[in-house]
Computed example of a mutant assay.
Amino acid sequence: MRVLVVEDDPGIAASLVLGLERAGYRARSVDTGREALAADPEPDVVLLDLGLPDLDGVEVCRRLRSRSRAAIIVVTARGEEADRVAALDEGADDYLVKPFGLAELLARIRAVLRRVQPSDSELLRHGPLAVDLRTRKVTVGGREVALTPKEFDILECLAADPGRVVTRQEVLERAWDAHWYGPTKVLDVHIAALRRKLGVPGLVETVYGRGFRLGAPDPGQHPDAGAR
């Protein structure tokens, strides 16, 4: 994880960089807003002071958020409610008032990263398929696929354990209701729609007499195969 410290006090900046590096982050510092906006490569986390010599930190926050997905944590001596509201409204993910301890800062960084970046347990992958459980976003070969809530629930059920046969009743109970007793034909309609939207032959397999599973798609039939 790359952390950019935007701080014009050299002593504070050096202390933060040292503490972050000891915690396992790759950290560096800049002392102006313009340097922060020009940072390359783009950091994963920005620790942003508001009292910068060239640009107001809130304006830097606004510009960063307009073009970056980095987590932004304001670290500043300005603790007034108006400053907090302004920074958070412009896209800051958290706000920490100086002085603070390194342990608290590291905990804030971990908490923000959990919110803005899916962990391995929140992102299910199988071949070209990626299922983000946190955002309920599905992509196939980088192409986003729009699913209905029920289609997503079915896919999540299958993607949780690729290759395992999930029975029809298990899918119905997990995607509809724990005590489903209605007709199972409704499931076939949703499975057909799911296959059509994913567009990858062999990805969602029917195991006759048992249920469904995520299989090994034929890479030659993948819709993006010719582009790679």
Rank of each mutant, 00 (worst) to 15 (best):
L194W: 03
V60F: 03
D49R: 04
D177W: 11
D132W: 00
R134I: 09
A130D: 05
G79W: 14
G220W: 15
E151I: 13
V6T: 00
G141D: 07
L203R: 12
P53V: 08
R2I: 00
A82F: 01
L172V: 06
A14F: 06
F152Y: 09
V204L: 05
R213G: 01
F152M: 00
V85P: 05
D94C: 02
A86Y: 05
I73W: 07
D8G: 04
D54C: 00
R136A: 08
A86M: 13
D224I: 01
R114W: 07
E59K: 09
L172D: 10
L18M: 09
W180L: 01
G101N: 06
R108W: 12
T167G: 12
D49P: 06
V186I: 07
L47S: 14
E151T: 05
H190A: 06
E173R: 15
V75W: 03
E35Q: 15
V186C: 00
P53A: 10
T184H: 12
A159H: 14
S15Y: 08
L47R: 11
D44N: 08
R22N: 08
V60Q: 05
A39W: 04
L88R: 14
D224R: 12
V30N: 06
G79K: 12
C157N: 07
V17I: 06
A87V: 07
D177P: 09
L155E: 11
H190G: 03
L133S: 06
S121W: 12
A14H: 09
Y95I: 12
V200R: 04
A23F: 04
P219T: 06
R174S: 09
L106D: 12
L47N: 11
R136Q: 13
L172P: 11
T135N: 02
V74P: 01
D89Y: 14
Y95Q: 06
S66I: 02
G215P: 04
V116N: 02
A103L: 13
R22K: 11
V189K: 06
T76F: 09
G220T: 03
V145L: 00
A103V: 14
R65W: 12
D89M: 09
V200K: 01
G51T: 11
L124S: 03
I191E: 01
G33C: 04
E122M: 10
G57W: 03
V140Q: 03
L172E: 08
V140P: 02
D9G: 09
R174N: 13
L133V: 11
E104C: 10
F100D: 08
H179E: 07
E90G: 00
R195A: 02
E173W: 04
V140K: 06
A70Q: 02
K197V: 10
D94Y: 04
V5G: 07
Y181S: 15
L129A: 07
G202H: 03
A77W: 10
A175P: 14
D93G: 15
H126I: 04
D83A: 15
P219W: 09
D153M: 10
E151Y: 02
I154W: 08
G11H: 14
G199C: 09
F212N: 07
Y208I: 08
K185A: 12
E144Q: 14
L88Q: 10
R63K: 13
D89K: 15
K185C: 03
A130F: 07
G202I: 10
L50I: 13
A14W: 04
A216F: 05
L105H: 15
G182D: 03
L52C: 02
K98S: 08
L55I: 03
D54E: 02
P149Y: 04
